[in-house]
Amino acid sequence: MNYLNKPLDTGKLLLKNRLIMPPMATAKSGIDGRISKDILDYYDEKSRGGYISLIIIEHSFVSQQGKASNNQVSIAQESMVEDLKKLAEIIHKNGCKTIMQINHAGSAANVEVTGMEIVGPSAVPNPFGTGMPPKELQKNEIKTIVNEFKEAALRVKNAGFDGVEIHSAHGYLLNQFLSPITNKRQDEYGGDITGRIKIHRDIVKNVREAVGESFPIFMRLGASDYMDGGLTIEDSKLAAQQLEKTGVDVLDISGGLCRYTIPGVNEEGYFTPLSKAIKEVVSIPVIVTGGIIHAKTADEILSRGEADLIGVGRAIYKDSDWARNAMK
């Protein structure tokens, strides 16, 4: 394991090796999104031994309207910070770094969960939503959402985490802006890729203002939809370059509207063509996830320079000793 064991200094975060546990929804929080004993126990077990360099906490909602599912973690109120501190402390005590992923579900939300109107960039049904077209967001509402991400990121910092990850993959709101399938806007938030990532850049600028220069900002980027008329890797390469310029420190590459799999593709590391293409055009570190279940595969991806960091999700979810065995 020559490559997996190598440390990585992002400039703002020193990681002892290249293994990351990516965000995976556990549905273990309280109904109000509070951190439960179940969640504390789960992350305690996964981080024990300190074999994983970085644990990215499952997506947390930035507002009630952006809540994706019942028992999802909340970062929507100040009152969540004290409980979140306990989560950061447990993971740190076990010898791992940890960041939180913040998210707005947009048209992937459900009225039965949020009790609120479903919104999106355009009145286009989400391929994975309820089939109902969302209400198109007005510009003032977009500004409100930008501010919700900013406030959520500051809460993440105040809770003692080592960074924040902005979620723009898997068919959620920022991914909906990114994809030409779900973004049909005629204003500055639509059109070509520059318009479709305006909200991303606005969020990054605002988050940076709130958390300061030294706090790491990651972005999970759904770099291709693998759908007709959807987001292509060519557009994502341009987006990645813009996001790096705007202040993103690490890009975490996954799927877009196809979510976390590619239809009909099962081999390990199926998103590596995306991470490799992105890595060729940016100078910041790139994470790849996607069906990686063997340490040898992770090492080979790193050795070929297709990514800088490897996210192993389902394998660690199923086997808490995976990281220890991989590192030994």
Rank of each mutant, 00 (worst) to 15 (best):
P180Y: 13
L137M: 12
E267G: 07
P23R: 01
G191L: 14
F271R: 04
S47I: 07
T297A: 08
G191Y: 12
E165A: 05
A240D: 11
L40A: 02
I118T: 04
S29V: 05
I91R: 00
K184V: 07
E148L: 06
G160D: 06
K12Y: 08
A108S: 12
D228F: 15
E151L: 07
K85C: 08
A277C: 12
L19P: 00
L257I: 09
G191K: 11
I35M: 06
A326Q: 01
N126H: 13
K16F: 05
N266F: 10
G66H: 08
Y260H: 14
A88P: 02
R208E: 04
K205L: 12
Q241L: 11
A108E: 05
D162S: 02
K85A: 10
D44S: 12
I316T: 00
C96E: 01
K28G: 07
V281D: 05
I166Q: 02
Q101F: 13
I197S: 03
H170W: 09
D162N: 04
V111M: 15
A123R: 09
L13T: 05
R220H: 09
G195F: 12
I284N: 00
N158G: 08
D225R: 15
A76F: 06
N94V: 08
D249L: 09
G195T: 12
I75S: 03
V62R: 04
I262E: 02
I118S: 03
I118K: 06
M100I: 11
N103I: 07
S53W: 03
H92Y: 10
S179R: 14
G230E: 04
I57K: 00
G291C: 03
K12T: 09
M80G: 04
N5Q: 15
E165V: 11
L40I: 11
Q101I: 06
L13C: 07
G120E: 03
